[in-house]
Amino acid sequence: MTILRVPGDVRANAGDCMHAGGIYWTEIWGWEQGAVALNTATIPEPEFDDADDPASTDAIKAVDAAIADHAQRVAELSATPYSDYVKLPSEAHPDETPARDIIEVLSARGWAPVRQPQGV
């Protein structure tokens, strides 16, 4: 079993995994043998310094712009009168999320989305 320490008095099992915290964190040591206990508070936060990387800064700005553009299109569609809305083809409707727009702007900058192997 893998046990992950969480804040608060919590204990929740999910198959071979458990979240435990507070009073339950000390209880698990009395009955669990062969467990791997993880206290994430001891793991240092990674340090990312992309300030000097112009490609990274450009990508961040492009993603922010794509999200803002998507939000604007959704707002415009929401403000469309119903009589005009029903006349719009489905292609004129923005996606539910800006994910496709983000992939497009990153792909235009040479970034490639991660492909999951089949069956995963």
Rank of each mutant, 00 (worst) to 15 (best):
residue 93 H to W: 08
residue 95 D to T: 02
residue 52 D to K: 10
residue 91 E to F: 13
residue 90 S to C: 06
residue 85 Y to H: 12
residue 83 S to A: 13
residue 110 G to R: 05
residue 76 E to F: 01
residue 109 R to N: 05
residue 41 A to V: 07
residue 82 Y to T: 06
residue 35 A to T: 15
residue 40 T to G: 05
residue 69 D to L: 13
residue 98 P to C: 06
residue 37 A to S: 08
residue 78 S to G: 11
residue 67 I to L: 02
residue 68 A to K: 03
residue 112 A to R: 15
residue 90 S to F: 03
residue 2 T to M: 09
residue 12 A to G: 04
residue 53 D to S: 08
residue 38 L to Q: 09
residue 48 F to S: 11
residue 79 A to H: 08
residue 112 A to V: 03
residue 90 S to V: 07
residue 3 I to M: 06
residue 111 W to M: 04
residue 27 E to I: 04
residue 39 N to Y: 01
residue 83 S to F: 07
residue 72 Q to R: 15
residue 58 D to H: 08
residue 37 A to Q: 05
residue 102 I to S: 01
residue 33 Q to F: 02
residue 51 A to Y: 05
residue 118 Q to S: 14
residue 62 A to Y: 10
residue 57 T to Q: 13
residue 24 Y to Q: 08
residue 120 V to K: 12
residue 98 P to I: 07
residue 105 V to L: 08
residue 97 T to F: 15
residue 58 D to L: 14
residue 110 G to S: 06
residue 7 P to N: 03
residue 81 P to F: 11
residue 102 I to E: 01
residue 15 G to N: 13
residue 9 D to H: 04
residue 68 A to D: 03
residue 59 A to F: 01
residue 82 Y to A: 10
residue 19 H to A: 02
residue 58 D to M: 12
residue 79 A to K: 08
residue 83 S to Y: 09
residue 55 A to N: 11
residue 43 I to Y: 10
residue 113 P to C: 02
residue 33 Q to T: 06
residue 19 H to E: 06
residue 119 G to Y: 01
residue 67 I to H: 02
residue 15 G to C: 10
